[in-house]
């Protein structure tokens, strides 16, 4: 009978009392473990590593993970995310005002470094990461400074890739209506500075800018109509940077909340020099 069930449930028997107490105790714990934990800390701030194949992304990743020495690497086929700690002496910008001994420092020092394959066929991994970023704090675009001399195939490919990335970032800003998405700064890390043929960071910047200018103009020259007197209007969707500008400058990206910095360093070869990159990362966290 149903009423007997109801009776049993409502009668102050020790069993029922026990069950209620257990439920009452468990629910908060349950809620805490599932709701709170799932939303909060699990997504570490992440930094994305992008760049053409052979620029040293995976090496940089292993260097940052291991601290002293980069591991030997080969062409990547799959992206990987690695948990890294800021080195001693670097504080995340969000923890600037914390005390040295604040235990929270331990967590603010952690971030995820996401490596992506640079091979032409596998760049969609990187683009996926860009289009729906999870707590993405910045992008490091690695370039091989030794292959960026004028007329080099490497420069063309690097500029192509960088152009595409910047365009995605720009579109992301333009397309968003209403709430502005979080800004994603980009660091052009000129790697392999230890090599003799490497260009200094300033030159890397200028040659990339010049090459991106070329990419931009050639991209804009799609198939046109053959009709006379056609007036091109609009269609500036795929134009990177300031509309109407003659030369592309990284500074033009600031309009779209994309701060581009260029700095040099090297991952392999004797003593790794990554001080500037670390500083950049710590400022983003």
């Amino acid at each position: 009978m149903a009423s007997s069930w109801v009776d049993a449930l409502l009668s102050p028997s020790p069993l029922v009392l026990g069950i209620t107490v257990i439920i009452a105790l468990l629910i908060p714990i349950f809620l805490h473990s599932f709701v709170f934990r799932a939303s909060g800390l699990t997504t570490l701030p992440s930094i994305l590593l992008i760049g053409p194949s052979g620029s040293g992304k995976t090496s940089l990743l292993t260097l940052f993970e291991r601290g002293t020495q980069a591991a030997q690497t080969h062409t990547s086929q799959a992206p990987i995310a690695v948990e890294c700690d800021l080195p001693v002496g670097k504080t995340a910008s969000s923890a600037r005002y914390r005390s040295e001994h604040d235990p929270a420092n331990l967590t603010t020092k952690k971030f995820l470094l996401i490596d992506t394959p640079g091979h032409g066929k596998l760049r969609h991994h990187a683009l996926d990461n860009l289009t729906n970023p999870q707590n993405l704090r910045g992008i490091i675009f690695l370039v091989d400074a030794a292959t960026l001399s004028a007329g080099d195939e490497g420069l063309r490919q690097t500029a192509d890739y960088l152009h595409d990335i910047l365009l995605i970032l720009q579109k992301r800003m333009e397309s968003s209506s209403g709430k502005k998405p979080k800004e994603i700064p980009l660091l052009v890390a000129a790697n392999k500075m230890d090599l003799f043929t490497a260009l200094p960071a300033a030159l890397v910047k200028s040659s990339l800018e010049a090459e991106i200018t070329k990419v931009r103009t050639s991209r804009s020259k799609g198939l046109l109509d053959s009709g006379i007197g056609m007036e091109e209007d609009g269609e500036k969707d795929d134009w990177l940077g300031e509309v109407g500008s003659k030369d592309f400058k990284f500074a033009q990206m600031e309009e779209f909340d994309v701060l581009v910095e260029v700095s040099g360093g090297n991952v392999a070869g004797g003593e790794p020099v990554t001080e500037k990159w670390w500083r950049w990362i710590s400022e983003r966290l």
Binding site: T58, Q72, T73, H74, T75, A78, I80
Partner: peptide, 9 residues
């Protein structure tokens, strides 16, 4: 060599 698909040896 033993390496991962993400390229690390």
């Amino acid at each position: 060599e033993i390496l991962t698909t993400s390229g690390v040896v």
